[in-house]
């Protein structure tokens, strides 16, 4: 999955660099990206809404389950704020990068549209790195920092890409917590990124 996705990006970069894209596409990147994004979010919505059992079970778990994604959101943003200030970045920029929570496509597009193509590219790379590093670090965190901490690295991706890893290295009983965690963080990305930048 991640290979296919990264391959699409690389092919896109090469096609753009080599000037292989039709002029009509080049002139309408923003419009086309919006269309793809709407299609994508509609599909994600179908998957969330279609899983009735999941919505019901989450409701039964109570307030503790919501605390987990909220502290992960705070910790992620605090981390990028700290390193961002060491790198000499404006606080709003580095906070918005952290608020991508690993959802590289959405945070990259949002910041490219709201701020600049450069910050969009950095958001994309930062959040791709977060997903890739999570895949490596989840087994390590699960072993040394415990089952709840192991959900944290994946951020918004714990509802899809990193969910199988959490189930494998922490246990199937964490699947629902991890999914809900990813769901809340995914919902926070389009809210927090525009607020922070």
């Amino acid at each position: 999955m991640i290979v296919l996705i990264l391959l699409s990006l690389v092919i896109g970069i090469l096609a753009g660099y080599a000037g292989l894209l039709p002029a009509g596409v080049q002139a309408n990147f923003d419009f086309l990206i919006n269309c793809a994004l709407c299609l994508l979010l509609w599909g994600i919505g179908l998957e969330i809404g279609g899983n009735r059992q999941l919505l019901r079970q989450v409701g039964a778990m109570g307030f503790r389950i919501i605390l987990l994604p909220l502290v992960v959101a705070g910790g992620s943003i605090a981390g990028t704020l700290l390193v961002g200030s060491l790198l000499g970045m404006p606080p709003g920029d580095s906070a918005a990068l952290g608020a991508g929570f690993g959802w590289y496509s959405l945070s990259g597009v949002l910041l490219a549209k709201l701020h600049s193509v450069e910050l969009g590219a950095l958001a994309f790379l930062t959040n791709v790195s977060r997903e890739a590093l999570s895949i490596i670090l989840i087994p390590v965190v699960a072993r040394y920092a415990g089952r709840y901490a192991a959900v944290a690295p994946g951020g918004a991706t714990t509802m899809d890409v990193t969910l199988p890893l959490i189930v494998k290295f922490v246990g199937p009983d964490m699947a629902l917590v991890a999914f809900f965690h990813g769901l809340v963080l995914s919902a926070l990305v389009p809210v927090l990124v525009p607020l922070l930048v």
């Binding site: 999955m1 296919l4 996705i5 990264l6 699409s8 990006l9 690389v10 092919i11 896109g12 970069i13 090469l14 096609a15 753009g16 660099y17 080599a18 000037g19 894209l21 596409v25 080049q26 990147f29 086309l32 990206i33 793809a36 994004l37 299609l39 994508l40 599909g43 994600i44 179908l46 998957e47 279609g50 496509s105 990259g108 597009v109 490219a112 193509v117 590219a121 994309f124």
Partner: peptide, 22 residues
């Protein structure tokens, strides 16, 4: 829908790559 979202992500990243590459 699973295939739709995968295709959506691929299309999105291809377009973003194209924008970055140019």
């Amino acid at each position: 829908t699973g295939k739709l979202t995968t295709a959506g992500v691929m299309l999105l990243l291809f377009l973003m790559g194209g924008q970055m590459g140019s």
